[in-house]
């Protein structure tokens, strides 16, 4: 579904991604871990099309289409979704109106008619329950005055509403207490199916206790330096990242 080949990217003249290779297939759950500042959010941003990043080398293919040539909204309509690490607040844009606009633009792209008010409401109710997203937040301005946890839940709620094929979750677990973490994880697990794929970016092993990954990648200094299974996450939890960094430096000095 998604193929990333030798991806290099920079922001404000600073090299951030330095040759990422990654293959993601339908039905898979990938976790990306790594110390702060290693480039995880940057990778997510480049995939979603944030234009402050410049891709200097490499390719990204999504279902056979060149993702890097698409505008951010086209990527979303093709089925790529990014749950932001820091969702923005947009005063004056109601959550409901925003979602309706987004959903209908995606539907129009797929040649589907706009949802009728009643159907939209029904869908909204159903997905709200999935992540226990309080309905009084629906009529408020987008993320305005939401707590950290509410913002993250809103991201997953949007994910459920828009139903993309590939979802990238950037540190969705940070800012969530243990109950919220469980609710959000359950929501994500219910959305899993054979046609979809997930990329979970996280710092901590604890999320991966609820959402079991098929692959765990370690991103460090703009490269994936190790790929393993869920046991790798446990090992990282115990030993930290230093041993990996040392191995890397040893390899490089050879």
């Amino acid at each position: 579904m998604l193929t990333i080949k030798n991806l290099h990217a920079e922001v404000e003249g600073k090299k951030i991604l330095k040759g990422i290779n990654l293959e993601i297939n339908k039905g898979e759950m990938h976790a990306i871990m790594g110390p702060n500042g290693s480039g995880k959010s940057s990778l997510a941003s480049v995939l979603a099309g944030r234009d402050s990043y410049t891709v200097t080398e490499g390719e990204v293919w999504f279902n056979g289409k060149n993702l890097l040539e698409m505008a951010p909204e086209e990527r979303a309509r093709e089925g790529v979704f990014l749950a932001f690490q820091y969702p923005v607040e947009i005063p004056g844009v109601s959550n409901l109106n925003f979602l309706k606009t987004a959903l209908n633009e995606i539907r129009a792209y797929k040649g589907l008619p706009a949802l009728e008010a009643r159907e939209f409401l029904k869908l909204t109710k159903e997905k709200q329950q999935l992540v226990d997203f309080h309905s009084n937040l629906m009529n408020r301005s987008l993320n305005e005055g939401f707590s950290g946890g509410e913002k993250k839940r809103n991201e997953i709620f949007q994910l459920a509403m828009l139903n993309p094929q590939l979802a990238i979750l950037d540190e969705t677990d940070s800012g969530l207490d243990i109950d919220a973490l469980r609710i959000v994880s359950n929501g994500v697990n219910k959305l899993r199916d054979a046609e979809k794929a997930f990329v979970i970016i996280t710092h901590y092993q604890r999320l991966l206790e609820y959402i079991i990954p098929d692959f765990v990648h370690v991103l460090y200094d703009g490269r994936i330096i190790r790929t393993g299974t869920k046991e790798l996450a446990l090992e990282l939890e115990e030993r930290g990242y230093d041993w990996l960094k040392e191995e890397l430096h040893l390899k490089e000095s050879v």
């Binding site: 979603a48 099309g49 944030r50 234009d51 402050s52 505008a71 951010p72 909204e73 990527r75 979303a76 309509r77 979704f81 990014l82 932001f84 969702p87 923005v88 947009i90 005063p91 004056g92 844009v93 109106n97 925003f98 606009t101 987004a102 959903l103 633009e105 995606i106 792209y109 301005s141 949007q158 828009l162």
Partner: peptide, 28 residues
């Protein structure tokens, strides 16, 4: 705000519709 525009567009909302939402918000 670039951030807000990117957020809206990342949800599938085209540039013009995003601007319309933002102007509506501005005049809200």
């Amino acid at each position: 705000s670039e951030e807000s525009m990117f957020y809206l567009r990342s949800r599938g909302i085209g540039e013009d519709a995003a601007k319309a939402l933002m102007v509506n918000a501005f005049s809200h």
